[in-house]
Design a protein around this nucleic acid. Structure first.
Lengths: 342, 342
DNA sequence: TTGTAGGCGTTATCAG
DNA sequence: CTGATAACGCCTACAA
């Protein structure tokens, strides 16, 4: 099918070695020879066989990423879409491609990592949405394979790898204090699943915010959701069923916040005046939501780009000035948090 | 680094050949031998070297896709995000991975295709957003490489390849007729760039709708945009500057419709009552927009899934019952198209 | 400046 | 049932 070095060698009358060197830009090839070989290569539409190169252990010019599968609710991918776009754009500028495997967390997911790493298909990996005792991180460390992470480990676990994270503990503290300043006294919280690494940070931030505002922490104001719209919807229903006097609900990501808004509106209440809602992430839909969503902004796209730069520096053996980056979150106030209570 | 067949052979005392066959599940290996070999392989954490397999010309279990780069406006990727998610989810179920290259259309883009196809990195390709005289299609046909397309060729060009498309000519006709029934007589249109394959279909649909409603086509009610929010914004400004009496604007995708809404609102006008707006695609943001966007629904996620099934059937040499699928569009009426004019 | 030879890890062919 | 051997396409000492 595709022309090989051998084909070019035969047609040009040179050896495979010379052809290889001419095409790879070595300077120990006669310029005339090189020109001739290049023109023959072009006429044959030569394109190097990448697997053959990779077999030799050369760079794959590919970054690997495994993202959570989610067949029913694809808008759930908002976070990953943005991260992926940031990663893809930055990679492209460095002439890197992306190898993506969509997997449900679990055994198959680890197999996907093994295929990429041990299978020699990528130079490095980007992982996201760290979990507690994340087996993926353990695996990559054990393999000594280059990787970078969006999000650090859960509190108390070691962070001995390069990452970029947003200080979401501060984020939740800011959000909680903001709502208290608006006059709220009963604030519900919808957390991510317990095994997500940042769940405890956000939980702690909420506690700190309450303490700072002089409010007591109430364990039954807190429920767990699945990070999807539907999880926010169910979480809000549960909270409002048991605590109809809640005046505000914080959801730990925007998707769940949107679900929370639906639940509130479904009860004939107004988001904002009746129940304030806030989220986390500032995905594009947050701005378009009705009412627009008050949230904590994470520069997801930029994080994706910076992760690529970090990863490629590691792959190339360059020094990383900063290998563990903690960004400060930014509060974005929109209509969903409602007016100051009087 | 990773254990190879050779390592297993040495440790188990069998030959590389036998190890290979034992691991690949051939039935001409003594069951005891196989068990022994498998346990040694596991103890060594063996993972097959994929490049080596690919070099032998075996399946890569990978689908390739090149998507347009877009560093500034990542939400522009809404269409591609959904398509990608559909493709990724379906691929995953077939144990396929995705090789993604983000590229600006042009010379580098074709190079990305060549790297994937001639470089033997993928079993087949999915392409999207067909252009006029699309060089990518010409290339893949010439190479005889399996591929499927989201979107057919521009009117008048041959469609001699497998695709799934929505009949967007009908879509624009429906949209135009709907606005005319609401009482609109001056309807602006923001088209995609001229080189996009579906531009003429949508343009024609608009003309048909006008004719059906007894209105005359006015060339200066029509402008071109770039498929991004900003393009819709600029297009609407241009239309409203020159024709302030327009009562409705159709944008040929939802992103441009969102930009159109901003432009209208920026002039202190109300979307709906003052100027009706309609889009095309029904991306998630359409539903959350304020006001919510009237649009033509395309089942982008499902199209992604079906494309994978078609592609893999082709790769496997199976018969395709349908290789050219034209879906009928569906009008989704929301608030942005406003009330019936009296 | 150019060519020869060997090997990356795998699988297919052919013998034993 | 098992094992040598060759080959996929490329790169890189080493030789000439």
């Amino acid at each position: 099918m595709g022309a090989t070095l051998k084909d070019i060698a035969e047609k040009s009358g040179y050896s495979v070695t010379t052809v290889s060197r001419a095409l790879s830009g070595y300077d120990d090839v006669n310029e005339q020879t090189r020109q001739h070989i290049i023109s023959v290569a072009n006429s044959l539409g030569y394109e190097p066989n990448l697997p053959a190169r990779h077999l030799r252990g050369l760079s794959t010019q590919t970054i690997g990423m495994v993202i959570p599968a989610n067949d029913q609710t694809f808008s759930a991918h908002d976070f990953f879409s943005q991260l992926l776009t940031g990663v893809g754009d930055a990679a492209s500028r460095e002439r890197y491609d992306l190898l993506i495997s969509t997997q449900i967390p679990g055994e198959e997911e680890m197999a996907a990592y093994r295929r990429m790493v041990r299978g020699n298909r990528v130079d490095g990996m980007v992982l996201a949405r760290t979990r507690q005792h994340d087996p993926r991180i353990a695996y990559l460390q054990e393999q000594g394979h280059p990787f970078v992470v969006s999000g650090r480990s859960a509190p108390g676990e070691p962070n001995d790898y390069p990452f970029i994270d947003v200080d979401s503990q501060a984020g939740l503290r800011i959000l909680t204090e903001f709502l208290i300043e608006l006059g709220h006294r009963r604030i519900g919280l919808i957390l991510p699943p317990e095994d997500i690494a940042y769940t405890d940070y956000r939980h702690n931030g909420y506690r700190e915010g309450l303490a700072h505002g002089g409010l007591e922490y109430q364990a039954d104001y807190v429920v767990y959701g699945d990070l999807l719209r539907s999880g926010g919807y169910r979480g809000a229903q549960r909270l409002l069923d048991t605590h109809p006097l809640l005046t505000a609900i914080i959801a730990c990501n925007d998707l769940m916040a949107l679900g929370t808004m639906s639940a509130i509106q479904g009860r004939g209440l107004q988001v904002g005046p009746d129940v304030a809602v806030a989220g986390f992430d500032d995905i594009p839909a947050a701005e378009y939501a009705h009412p627009a969503l008050t949230t904590i902004q994470q520069p997801i796209y930029e994080i994706g780009q910076r992760l690529v730069h970090m990863l490629l520096a590691i792959v190339r053996g360059e020094d990383l000035p900063e290998s563990q980056i903690l960004l400060q979150p930014k509060l974005v106030v929109r209509a969903s948090s409602g007016p100051k209570l009087t």
